[in-house]
Amino acid sequence: MNVSIRLAREEEAFIVHQVMIAAFEEYRQMDVPSSALNETVDSIRQKLRSGTEQALLCFNSNQPIGTVRFTINGASLYFFRLSVCPKARGKGVAKAMLHWLEDYAKECKVQEIGCRVRASIPKNIYLYESAGYHICEEKIVMSNDVIPVKTVVMKKYLAK
């Protein structure tokens, strides 16, 4: 699969949202559904506009197939909502976006990159481990401020 990856523009928030919802739909029936399913195009657009976060878009033949959002804080890049459309999974799309993020982080003089993953979804943990990330912390987060969800923080330290 020949993909192209680039930063999303504010006016593409609807594409970021559309891909994210398609990717996270499988988590709707979980005991505690992903909060990604509650996000709106407007909330994403506002964050892109204000610069509080950035997003990538990944395309195959001009069709959006992946996205990931991220922030940079000092020497750390934190990414979240890594999303690959179901029909494009298993073809290296997620790893291509991770590689792009790592290159971008290095350009920005960032020394570590990380994310938070639900402990109950081992395939996602395995994806990051296979890309060189390691579990460095376990944390309980509160979904909708009431339901505890066990997560792991995963990081990768980048060579200078």
Rank of each mutant, 00 (worst) to 15 (best):
N2S: 11
R6A: 07
L7W: 03
L7T: 04
L7Y: 06
R9G: 10
Q18T: 05
V19N: 07
V19H: 10
A23T: 05
F24P: 00
F24G: 01
E25D: 11
M30Q: 12
D31A: 15
V32N: 05
P33R: 01
S35F: 03
N38W: 05
N38D: 14
V41Q: 11
S43Y: 02
I44S: 10
R45K: 15
S50I: 09
Q54T: 01
L57F: 12
L57T: 01
F59L: 11
N62A: 14
P64C: 06
G66E: 07
T67W: 11
V68A: 15
R69G: 05
F70A: 08
T71Y: 02
N73F: 00
N73V: 09
G74Y: 02
G74K: 13
A75L: 10
L77T: 04
Y78H: 15
R81K: 14
C85W: 13
C85Y: 13
P86T: 15
P86H: 15
G92S: 08
A94P: 00
H99K: 13
W100R: 04
D103S: 12
Y104S: 03
A105H: 05
E107C: 10
E107S: 14
C108M: 13
Q111W: 02
R116L: 14
R118F: 07
P122T: 11
P122A: 15
N124E: 06
I125Q: 14
Y128W: 08
S130H: 12
A131Q: 05
G132A: 10
E138T: 12
I140M: 13
S143F: 11
P148F: 04
T151P: 04
M154N: 03
M154S: 03
Y157F: 09
